[in-house]
Design a protein around this nucleic acid. Sequence first.
DNA 1: GTGAGCCTTCAGCTATTCCTCAGGTCCCTG
DNA 2: CAGGGACCTGAGGAATAGCTGAAGGCTCAC
Lengths: 218, 218
Amino acid sequence: MVVDDEPSIRDLLSASLRFSGFEVLTAADGYEAVEVAERTSPDLVVLDVMLPDLDGFEVARRITAPVLFLTARDATEDKIAGLGVGDDYVTKPFSLEEVQARIRAVLRRTRGESTPVSRLKVADLELDEDSREVWRAGRSVRLSPTEYKLLHYFMSNAGRVLSKAQILDHVWNYDFGGDAGVVESYVSYLRRKVDDVEPRLIHTLRSVGYVLREPPAG
Amino acid sequence: MVVDDEPSIRDLLSASLRFSGFEVLTAADGYEAVEVAERTSPDLVVLDVMLPDLDGFEVARRITAPVLFLTARDATEDKIAGLGVGDDYVTKPFSLEEVQARIRAVLRRTRGESTPVSRLKVADLELDEDSREVWRAGRSVRLSPTEYKLLHYFMSNAGRVLSKAQILDHVWNYDFGGDAGVVESYVSYLRRKVDDVEPRLIHTLRSVGYVLREPPAG
DNA sequence: GTGAGCCTTCAGCTATTCCTCAGGTCCCTG
DNA sequence: CAGGGACCTGAGGAATAGCTGAAGGCTCAC
């Protein structure tokens, strides 16, 4: 369930989550959130701290589902400490990659220890979501946070062509005002760090986008 | 079994214990506690002294399971220490690390003397839960209580990335109001005391958290 | 009461990271 | 083969996260 009073945020999140295969309900304020949560028992609630009626903490107290808080990057960020054990938070403005990563982490933690796919693999490139480690050809590679998010997005969409606009929408914060040049820069960084051996995995499709995949044999 | 009339405490404890692999039942008052205890014979009962109907001492008399009392830091604390009732106690506000440590200690004492994992080891760093001693590279190290709890939390989660918020939630009391800066301070203390030789074990993951592990080869 | 150790805050400093920009390269098209 | 658009990448300035020394206040033992 997604709870936020701003329709743009609500739509952004619910569309992105639906696309990833989640079933999504939404609520625009605290009372509606509590009501829907009681009626439908969602697996997880993405909850804005700042709501017009009840605040997010109060809503969290009244429901039983694990919560992923959305909060501004300011004083309220500190108040978030003292979360329930399964819970977590993301600061606004966020990137979709980040929200989805946290959602999966919370679900993995609270739901059984079944540890679903926490390890992504493409050819001899590997990424572990728990430890955030990355290996290429057996060698450990150190990535900055943005590099990691970008590589993670590529690997979760291996074989699919991603436009720079798509990449910008998923990996960068939703309020990022700059142009797509930054994507080129980061692809360049990634190539240097994880794609400096054969077979090359990151391919440019001129005037279309990028794709991560093993080159077809032959 | 967790017995407390405040839902927030009940949820905090039961979620944390479930995450650590315990099977948890809960009760909100004294009569329910006695009833559930008779029916299910729990291995241990975490029992708030202050309950709306029967008080914790009365409940403890009526059940056979070992008891870990929760009590305010005041006169009742002395009562418990004097009484000889119950097997141990923790004062509110507590930290999750502390409660879990006491639970394991009680279980180890009452259940067979099988002494399960009372010794944690990561590379040449060792920690003994019974004696609270810590060694690095064979050298004994003296730690303050908070330093010890933090290191214990790191070592029980070796290889897992822990955010500052998670650390705050587990190692500090649940009512701690300060910000995450204190975690940085204590990590700094720990580094000086137990991580001043190669290989470095405490690693910073910028804007993500910390992880205790042997550095990856390669 | 006094001192020692401990907890927490704070601020200056450092290292990393982010983003922009611009010159150069590649590739397609005409 | 020339031109132009798309892309690559090195350099650099700004912003930020994290480290650590210092200081204040607290508790506890003596």
